[in-house]
């Protein structure tokens, strides 16, 4: 099922050339904006250069320097990191335990729970903004990092639960029964047998939770009022001013924000592939 399938039908050289040209064109379309962001980030002026040349004329690190020294960049970074990591921990922990229960135990309300998780995914997040705002206000958590952590964890959980439940379902029940015969309690089985086997799926859900929190802008912008409570996306957005936009700073910021996500992707790459193909291919 998996693996490389070599093309079985004969394709002429002309067809192949066309296909490749098409793909190259697509790549350029996808990559050009990214290249452009790099160009702006390394161009000292804050203008919006209209030249098509992707190479910056007088490359410099001035924009990065400004961000890191003149703005409370590290405060925002700290906020983002704390919120994202806490969201990941809380979200993944709760998702793992509930997904396990949904996968293995039969209890009243099980199907309803699964369906309600699914239904919440059908509404755009913005719809939740006003109720969430009211709840946060009521809890006194507006303008608190904890407030965002709670909101992000709960929004990430439904996806994580479905993902993990699907994965747990593929782990043979025999393994748990063998562990039971070996004298393991349900908790031991979960921690020592199920979780270690589910690392790929856990990695996917962890990355998903992290990115949900890391990239989220709207709720953070609404809930956080004091500049030293901003997350990175909110802080950077303030660079896009009402009357002028500091494109250079903004581009440099965008690059800095993406670095952790890209790094995480690379670190978890192996597990991600395993996690996303799980269920189709049983190891």
């Amino acid at each position: 099922m998996s693996g490389h399938t070599s093309s079985t039908q004969q394709s002429t050289a002309g067809e192949r050339l066309l296909k490749n040209l098409f793909l190259v064109a697509l790549c350029v379309m996808v990559l050009y904006p990214v290249v452009w962001v790099f160009k702006m980030a390394f161009t000292p002026s804050q203008g919006f250069s209209m030249s098509l040349n992707p190479i910056p004329e007088n490359p410099s690190l001035a924009n990065f320097e400004y961000l890191l020294t003149e703005l409370p960049f590290f405060t925002w970074l700290f906020n983002s990191v704390v919120i994202s990591l806490a969201t990941t921990l809380v979200g993944v922990f709760l998702a793992c335990t509930s997904a396990y229960a949904l996968s293995r135990f039969r209890f009243p309300g099980r199907t309803t729970a699964m369906l309600s998780f699914l239904v919440t995914q059908m509404f755009p997040g913005v719809l939740m903004m006003i109720p969430l705002y009211l709840i946060m206000d009521w809890l006194g958590l507006l303008d608190h990092l904890l407030g965002l952590i709670l909101v992000y964890s709960t929004t990430a959980i439904p996806f994580c639960v479905w993902m993990l439940k699907g994965y747990f379902d593929t782990i043979p029940i025999d393994l748990e029964e063998a562990a039971m015969m070996d004298g393991a309690s349900t908790a031991t089985i979960f921690w020592k047998v199920i979780l270690p086997l589910s690392l790929p799926a856990v990695a996917v859900t962890a990355l998903f939770s992290f990115m949900t929190a890391w990239n989220e802008f709207i709720l953070a912008a609404v809930f956080m009022n004091r500049a030293d409570n901003y997350t990175l996306p909110v802080g950077l957005q303030r660079l896009v001013g009402q009357f002028s936009t500091d494109w250079g700073y903004f581009a440099a910021g965008a690059i800095l924000v993406s670095i952790p996500v890209v790094a995480l992707f690379f670190a978890l790459q192996k597990n991600l592939v395993g996690g996303l193909t799980a269920g189709g291919v049983k190891g």
């Binding site: 043979p172 025999d174 393994l175 029964e177 063998a178 562990a179 039971m180 015969m181 070996d182 004298g183 393991a184 309690s185 020592k192 047998v193 270690p196 086997l197 190891g283």
Partner: peptide
């Protein structure tokens, strides 16, 4: 099962895939 002092060999063997043979055998 834990208190019954019985051991079982399953048709599927049900070995713990993430453990070495040593750890599989010594788990209990």
């Amino acid at each position: 099962p834990r208190d019954r002092d019985v051991a079982m060999v399953f048709q599927s063997y049900a070995l713990y895939p993430h453990m070495t043979v040593y750890d599989n055998i010594s788990f209990g």
